[in-house]
Design a protein around this nucleic acid. Structure first.
Length: 110
DNA sequence: CGTATGACGAGCC
DNA sequence: AGGCTCGCCATAC
C-alpha cells in the first residue's frame, strides 16, 4: 500500500463529519496529526473535483464563519448547503461552534 | 530545488 | 466589529 498524501488524509477525515455538524480547518489538521496545517487543509479542499463525496461545506474557520468572501457565490452556496442540513447562522453570519461543532467520540492513542 | 500559494489561526489594534 | 501582521505547511510551478 502506498502512503496516502496529506490531502487524502484530509478527505478521509472530512468524510466523517456528519450531516448538520461543522468542523474547523484547524480541527481537521489536528485530526490528521498536523497541528498548524490549517491552511493546507484549505488547499486540499480547494483541490476537490466537482462530484466528490467529500462534504467540504462542513468545514469552516475557527471563528465559526465561512472562509469565502462574504458576497461570493461560493459563500452563498456553502451557507445554503449547511442551512439545508439544519446548521443555524446568527445575524452576523456566524455558526455557534459550541452548538454545531463536530466532536469525534474516540481518538487513537499512539 | 527555491519560491509562491492559500477555503487558516492567534494575537493585536 | 473588522482588519492587519506573522507564523504555519503541503503542494504547485
Amino acid at each position: 500500500m502506498p502512503e496516502q498524501s496529506f490531502f487524502e488524509r484530509v478527505y478521509a477525515v472530512v468524510r466523517k463529519v456528519p450531516r448538520g455538524r461543522v468542523a474547523t480547518y484547524g480541527q481537521i489538521a489536528r485530526l490528521c496529526d498536523l497541528p498548524g496545517g490549517a491552511r493546507t487543509v484549505g488547499w486540499a479542499l480547494r483541490a476537490l473535483q466537482r462530484g466528490s463525496r467529500v462534504p467540504w461545506h462542513r468545514v469552516i474557520n475557527a471563528r465559526g464563519s465561512i472562509s469565502f468572501p462574504r458576497q461570493s457565490l461560493q459563500a452563498a452556496r456553502q451557507r445554503a448547503l449547511l442551512e439545508s442540513e439544519g446548521v443555524a447562522f446568527d445575524q452576523r453570519g456566524f455558526v455557534s461552534l459550541s452548538e454545531f461543532q463536530w466532536q469525534p467520540r474516540c481518538r487513537r492513542r499512539p
